[in-house]
Nucleic acid binder design. Structure first.
Length: 174
DNA sequence: AGCACGATGCTCT
DNA sequence: GAGCATCGTGCTT
């Protein structure tokens, strides 16, 4: 599954000419209109349109009045599927990220977007192209043994079996 | 046009 | 550990 491969990869962001990067530690998979936890559950809308686009691009959306979420689109064009990036371990530009986070950590989907300065302007950005200012580089292949698998977080009103699908993947921090 | 609520984070107890 | 901030989106009238 693509989600696992993203664990250990390096998320890179150029913000105001400064290179920021973090090791991807935690992700969640959202797959198709069948998946009632997925934003595409009721078809294509203006918000989730990016998920229907070509894979390798970003799907960025806003929630809870003040948080941006970053996803990597993984499904073939026309099939809505994405991986939510939930946590990173700062590697480059650590000071800048700390400052943007007010000294707090980057372990959380809304936290990492704040640290990296990610918002709607990066929706549909090409994550395989550095020109976008946001991309993903291959990381060190992590051993499968250190990966924690569990149900996705925050799906309070989502019916089973989707609510309990073990599509959350975490890597132990070094 | 109105309304309920969310793939969360922060603060205070 | 519980409560609230805060607003865009999608669904209902």
């Amino acid at each position: 599954m693509v989600a696992r491969e993203l664990l250990g990869a390096r998320l890179v962001r150029i913000l105001d000419g400064v290179r920021l990067a973090g090791l991807i530690l935690e992700v969640e998979a959202y797959i198709g209109e069948e998946d009632l936890g997925c934003h595409a559950k009721s078809g294509k809308t203006r918000r989730n349109a990016a998920m229907y686009g070509p894979p390798g691009h970003a799907y960025v959306y806003f929630t809870y009045g003040n948080h941006w979420m970053l996803n990597a689109v993984t499904g073939r064009e026309g099939f809505p599927a994405a991986v939510l990036l939930r946590a990173i371990d700062p590697l480059e530009g650590v000071e800048t990220m700390l400052q943007r986070r007010n000294g707090r950590d980057t372990l959380g989907p809304g936290k990492l977007t704040q640290a990296l300065g990610i918002d709607a302007s990066l929706n549909e950005a090409d994550l395989c192209n550095q020109d976008s200012g946001l991309w993903i580089e291959a990381g060190t292949p992590g051993g499968d043994k250190d990966i924690i698998i569990s149900p996705r977080v925050g799906l309070y009103t989502v019916p089973e079996p989707w609510k309990s699908m073990p599509w959350r993947f975490q890597m132990r921090r070094r």
